[in-house]
Write a protein that binds this DNA or RNA. Structure first.
Lengths: 204, 204
DNA sequence: ACATGTGAAGTTATTCACAGCC
DNA sequence: GGCTGTGAATAACTTCACATGT
């Protein structure tokens, strides 16, 4: 497999969701591009990673394409996810995902605050943070979402990785130091907003 | 001004936050790079956009650098922001920003649900959605955060733009169609998580 | 010595443009 | 005619490597 572009993966995620609207139909690269906010050439270039799926002159069959993207992106059995930090942001992420995704399941939440732990939050059991190693092993959790204050993020990551997590989505505004074979994605709300503020002033 | 790189702006936001830890001190590009998770050359290249601030052989003066980044990124008077959609995600964003940022202020929230409106949420007044044009004009709001269900996002954007908003941070998983002179940044939690899932499986 | 500032080189990502197929 | 798949061209971004200043 040739080296995989991070941008292409992001777009697959977007294409896939857009394709849900086109159940039985065909979609041309230009139409998908328009919806996704990219160029038609970009869409076709991305599809090369799937081995290409279009019928000449008739576009892509939406259902086929969606399935192909699914086979490319998803782990067949799905993946179990831990949420670390069940504060407001964490709980809103729980709600956001609750039962929504077929392959990605948040199966445990963790917090240090005893008011939040040892009960269900948004349908998900919330455990004391010191149970992380045990529960992560027992539930075969491979991914984690970190939504704790910045000062606690690195330590949380260390514990998670030791327990077997290999991918982290970090909402905390801290760069994490992790081994080579662990993937970290950052989702920093402040940075996003500062970027909007800058470009809104400098556009045109 | 030479064309501004979106990536550089993101890193400025990160550098600035890291520099807070170094109040009176000096910081070398390599140190900042380590903390930000980039290379030293990258840091120095970014600094060129500021006109360069380092003292040869002694690194950067943290406070000066932070101020220079601030002058580059921030609107001097700051910017007022509207939150559209005061559901769980929206409210967690309110908490996240409440009084935290010196230049970016969420000064109004909007929702269609009467249970949420005409009262304060996390210290921020929440209005009925149909008040958007009026309040946005009155409070001189220039940016908006969209945290509504996907089906409502485009319409919200249309109203916001008509009312004078020029930058949007969109948490809804929908590409927005907007005029050329409006900046939209996407923050799609599902896409972030799918990306983590993919690369966690394919790394190494 | 030591760390910046920066041309030049290298790498990655996107778009062009057109051959080929339906 | 309309749309895909793709080599070639372009643009964007990052790193190298070293001259320069302290």
């Amino acid at each position: 497999m040739t080296t995989i572009s991070s941008k292409t993966i992001e777009r697959f995620s977007i294409y896939r969701r857009l394709l849900e609207r086109y159940a039985g139909e065909r979609v041309a690269s230009g139409v998908l591009a328009e919806l996704a906010g990219v160029t038609a050439a970009q869409v076709r270039r991305d599809m090369m990673a799937l081995g290409c799926m279009g019928s000449s002159s008739r576009g892509y069959i939406a259902a086929e394409l969606r399935q192909a993207i699914g086979e490319y992106l998803d782990a067949p059995e799905g993946l179990n996810i831990a949420l670390v930090g069940a504060g407001e942001l964490g709980r809103s992420i729980l709600s956001y995902f609750a039962g929504r995704h077929k392959k990605l399941r948040i199966v445990a939440a963790f917090d240090v605050d005893p008011w939040l732990t040892d009960r269900k939050l948004r349908g998900c059991e919330c455990y004391q943070a010191d149970k992380m190693p045990e529960i992560i092993a027992k539930k075969n959790i491979k991914l984690a979402i970190i939504a704790v204050p910045p000062a606690a993020a690195q330590q949380a990551a260390d514990v998670l990785i030791k327990a077997g997590v290999t991918g982290i989505l970090n909402f905390s505004p801290t760069a994490l130091t992790v081994p080579e074979n662990i993937f970290v994605e950052y989702n920093d709300i402040t940075t996003s907003l500062e970027k909007v503020a800058f470009f809104a002033r400098h556009i045109s």
